Amino acid sequence: MAQFEALHPPLHTRPETRLAASSSPSTLASAPRPATHWHIGHEARDLGAIFDPDISLAVMQRRIDATLKMAVKAQSSGAYPLRMRWRGPISDLREALERYLPAPDAGAALIEDICVLGEAMGELFEVKDIGMRLEMTQSAMCPRFHVDRIPVRLVTTYDGPGTQWLPEHAADRLALGHGQPGHQDICLAPGEIHELRPGSLALLKGECWPGNEGRGLIHRSPVVPNGSRLMLSMDPG
């Protein structure tokens, strides 16, 4: 994963939006937002688009190579599904993975990939700690479209379908949560549902990103029709 060994300075062009665990939402900006609120590319620097106040989703598309696929597959051989939730210093992440993975000896490529992503999160958001969730499921964990009440989250799917999300023009925010009278369907246009490719890295801006109240990315877990899904999420701070 050499492309993550050094994130370039352009990722830090907006220091006023750097995040820590104590970040809190600010008032809603009055300036209108453009229709396109996502950025999708193929380079590590594309993830830096998340610092743009008009962007709520930044994606770096990538493929899972054969070595990583084998390491991922090896983790499904345990007696119980992999469900790891961990928070701590990024420097301790490798040790935690080696301790909790069902097949750590066969999971070197997976461990390396997750550790590189942890280091990238630390550099991008200038934090030393992260929260991490690595889970293998056979059903959608969050099947209803929703927004996260956090500043930002990185998600990627190592096996199975990727996270689904809605553009603003296809969503009714008044239907979020318990909904308001007359607003039942969050998704106004099922044909507009987008799904991240397996392996793609995505930064999802939440409600608690400074200045993003009411604009958190609307997303959900996908249906897993056959087999299982291994997904990773990371929160900075």
Results as ranks from 00 to 15, higher is better:
M1P: 04
A2C: 06
Q3T: 09
F4W: 15
E5T: 14
A6C: 09
P9T: 12
T13C: 04
R14S: 04
T17S: 11
L19F: 01
L19G: 00
A20M: 04
S24E: 13
S26H: 12
S26W: 13
A31G: 05
R33Y: 14
R33S: 13
P34F: 12
A35P: 01
W38K: 08
I40T: 15
H42V: 12
E43C: 11
R45D: 15
D46Y: 02
D46E: 08
G48L: 08
G48A: 10
S56L: 06
L57I: 07
R62G: 03
R62A: 03
R62S: 07
R63S: 15
I64G: 07
T67M: 07
A71Q: 07
V72G: 06
K73W: 03
S76V: 00
S76G: 10
G78D: 01
A79M: 09
A79V: 11
A79P: 01
Y80P: 00
P81L: 06
M84H: 14
R85P: 00
R85K: 12
W86H: 08
W86M: 06
P89S: 11
S91R: 14
L93N: 08
L101W: 11
L101N: 10
P102T: 10
A103Y: 01
P104L: 03
P104T: 05
A106D: 15
A108T: 11
A109G: 09
I111N: 05
E112V: 02
I114T: 07
I114L: 11
A120K: 03
A120I: 03
M121P: 03
G122N: 08
E123T: 12
E123K: 14
V127N: 04
M132K: 09
M132W: 05
R133D: 13
R133S: 15
Q138M: 10
S139E: 15
S139L: 08
C142N: 12
H146D: 10
D148Q: 10
I150V: 15
P151A: 15
V152S: 06
T156Y: 06
T157W: 02
T157Y: 02
T157H: 03
Y158Q: 07
G160H: 04
P161D: 07
P161Q: 04
G162Y: 00
W165V: 02
E168C: 03
H169T: 09
D172Y: 08
R173I: 06
G177D: 07
G179E: 02
Q180L: 15
P181E: 05
G182C: 10
G182L: 07
H183R: 10
Q184S: 09
I186K: 00
C187M: 05
C187K: 01
P190I: 12
P190R: 12
I193E: 09
I193S: 03
H194K: 15
E195Y: 01
L196G: 02
R197Q: 15
R197H: 11
P198L: 03
G199S: 08
S200W: 02
L204M: 13
L204W: 01
K205L: 09
C208I: 01
C208P: 00
G211Q: 06
N212H: 14
E213P: 00
G214D: 09
R215V: 00
G216W: 02
L217C: 11
H219G: 05
P222S: 08
P222K: 08
V223P: 02
V223S: 13
V224N: 06
G227W: 05
S228E: 11
M231Q: 13
S233W: 03
D235C: 04
D235E: 12
G237Q: 02
G237I: 02
